[in-house]
Amino acid sequence: MATTLLFVDADNQAPILATTLTRFLKTIGRESAKAIVAGNGVGDRVRNWELALKEARPDIEVACHVAPPRKQSADVRLMFELAPFYHGQPDSAVLLVIFSRDDLLVAAAECLVQKGHNAMVVVGSSSNGTSLVTDVPVVVLPSPQVAAAQVAPAPIHDVATARPANQSDTKPDNAVVTTAITKIRQQLKPNKQGGYAASAVGQVLAQLGHDKANRTKIVKQIPNLKEVGTGPEKRLIF
């Protein structure tokens, strides 16, 4: 029997995509699925994903994991869940779907495919048009606004996407920075000591579709930015 396992990075992808995700699985004949959801405990992301998946597909089995509030802790938790497959024998009936843009999990998908497993990466459409650079199949789900007018999901891309040579030299548009600031203030509560946890800010930007390099550029462009603390205690005041 065909089995589909979803590995959802709740810190990286928004739960509003749950309906589009389950519709995509139905389109490819993979309605029977189990979801493993991980997040770092900042806010209610894991719970929101569980509720969204259950609403989209009431019979889906969802395993939730709240990781410590540290950078990439959700990625690490999902990689622990993926480890048995990496060390196990490939099964042609099993499809591993990794729902994240994070480099660690994209690399995990590449390792699984190299081992002979059926694995793909699924992401929500990026507001800045950034493409993942990988040779594993990637499915880009339309945003909820676009999804209402579409039936079929975005196509699977089997080839690597070339990164523009001068991409690292470009600065984000002011509109992109403004949108990011608005989203941060909507989703996050200021720390009692002032500002926002740097890791939480990074997660909000990731949900908007920005990769690590662009997240760094956007943060540097925030007006009157002040950085306080280091490591997991780092705060961004603006």
Rank of each mutant, 00 (worst) to 15 (best):
D91C: 04
F238C: 09
E61Q: 14
L51I: 09
A175H: 04
S32N: 10
V66T: 07
D11T: 01
V177D: 00
D158Y: 15
N118Y: 02
N12P: 02
L17D: 04
L105E: 01
A67P: 01
A18Y: 03
R30W: 00
Q193R: 12
P155T: 06
F24L: 08
P90S: 01
F7H: 00
G43W: 06
L112G: 04
A74D: 01
H157L: 15
D44Y: 13
G43D: 09
L21R: 03
N174R: 11
A38Q: 02
T161N: 14
K183M: 11
S100D: 03
G209W: 00
V146C: 13
V42D: 05
P144H: 12
P15D: 07
H87K: 08
A14E: 08
D169K: 14
P58M: 10
I28P: 00
G88N: 04
K71W: 06
A109N: 05
K26M: 14
T4V: 05
I60C: 07
A206M: 01
K71H: 08
V62D: 01
L104P: 08
A10V: 03
V138H: 04
V177Y: 00
A147S: 08
L5N: 05
V94A: 03
A175R: 02
G29S: 02
P90M: 02
T19R: 14
A10E: 05
L112H: 03
A119K: 01
I222R: 04
A165N: 13
D11N: 05
K192D: 13
M120P: 02
V106H: 07
A160C: 12
T179D: 05
V37Y: 01
P172V: 00
L25M: 07
V201C: 03
A213F: 10
A160D: 13
V42I: 15
R70Q: 11
L17G: 03
A108M: 11
R30H: 05
L141C: 09
Q114D: 12
T161L: 15
A162V: 14
Q145N: 15
E55G: 13
R235G: 13
A74G: 01
Q167L: 14
L141H: 03
A56T: 12
I98P: 01
M120Y: 07
G88H: 00
V228T: 11
R30K: 03
S100Y: 00
S125W: 13
L6P: 00
C111L: 14
V146F: 15
Q221V: 05
S127P: 03
D173Q: 04
A149Q: 12
K171P: 10
A147E: 10
K54T: 11
A154D: 09
V94Q: 02
V76E: 07
D102K: 03
V113R: 06
R185G: 10
G202P: 01
F238Y: 08
N118D: 06
R101F: 02
K192W: 11
T179H: 07
I36T: 08
Q72D: 11
A160Q: 11
R70Y: 09
Q114R: 12
K115L: 14
D158R: 10
I16F: 09
D211C: 09
V76R: 05
V176L: 07
S168G: 15
K54P: 06
T182N: 09
A197C: 12
Y86P: 08
Q187E: 09
I60H: 06
L188H: 08
A148S: 15
